[in-house]
């Protein structure tokens, strides 16, 4: 059981940092307006040279391989919810680092989801 929770800890930390970097990178890139094939190719090449996105992909890759290891020893219905506690940390960092206006609905929503996660695990 403790190995599972160690993996959950690694996944939560890497995921939180990964998504924070991803949000920073996409903010730097700006809003995506076009969705045809050529635009997708341009988007991917722009993102491949964005430092925030590169750091984000590295963090999320670490999270992904830890997740693979977790799935090999735990149920999907344990693995996915247990790692969802990263949501609370993401919301805190969205407020502190990204300066998003997190109102009571978002705090309550993130809190409820986290409690739901605790029950699921």
């Amino acid at each position: 059981m403790s190995v599972k929770w160690l993996l959950v800890g690694i996944i939560v930390a890497a995921t939180t940092v990964g998504y924070l970097f991803q949000a920073l990178g996409m903010r730097q890139h700006g809003e995506v307006h076009e969705f045809h094939f050529g635009a997708l190719r341009d988007l991917l090449s722009a993102l491949a040279s964005n430092r925030w996105i590169i750091c984000s992909v590295l963090a999320l890759a670490a999270s992904f391989f830890s997740f693979m290891a977790l799935l090999s020893v735990a149920d999907l219905s344990f693995a996915v919810p247990a790692t969802a506690s990263s949501l609370v940390f993401e919301t805190i960092l969205a407020r502190l680092v990204l300066k998003e206006a997190v109102d009571w609905k978002r705090w309550a929503g993130a809190g409820l989801v986290a409690c739901g996660v605790a029950l699921l695990a």
Binding site: Y19, L20, Q22, A23, G25, M26, R27, H29, G30, E31, V32, L40, L43, L44, L47, I53, V80, P81, A84, L87, E90, T91, L93, A94, R95, L98, E100, V102, R106, G109, A110, V113, G116, V117, L120
Partner: peptide, 23 residues
């Protein structure tokens, strides 16, 4: 890729809880 696209115009503190419907 679709999550990154969504984050290009939406808040992290919006995207993360909403997409947790996936759980």
């Amino acid at each position: 890729i679709s999550q990154m696209t969504l984050l290009s115009w939406a808040d992290l503190s919006y995207v993360m809880p909403i997409t947790s419907l996936g759980y």
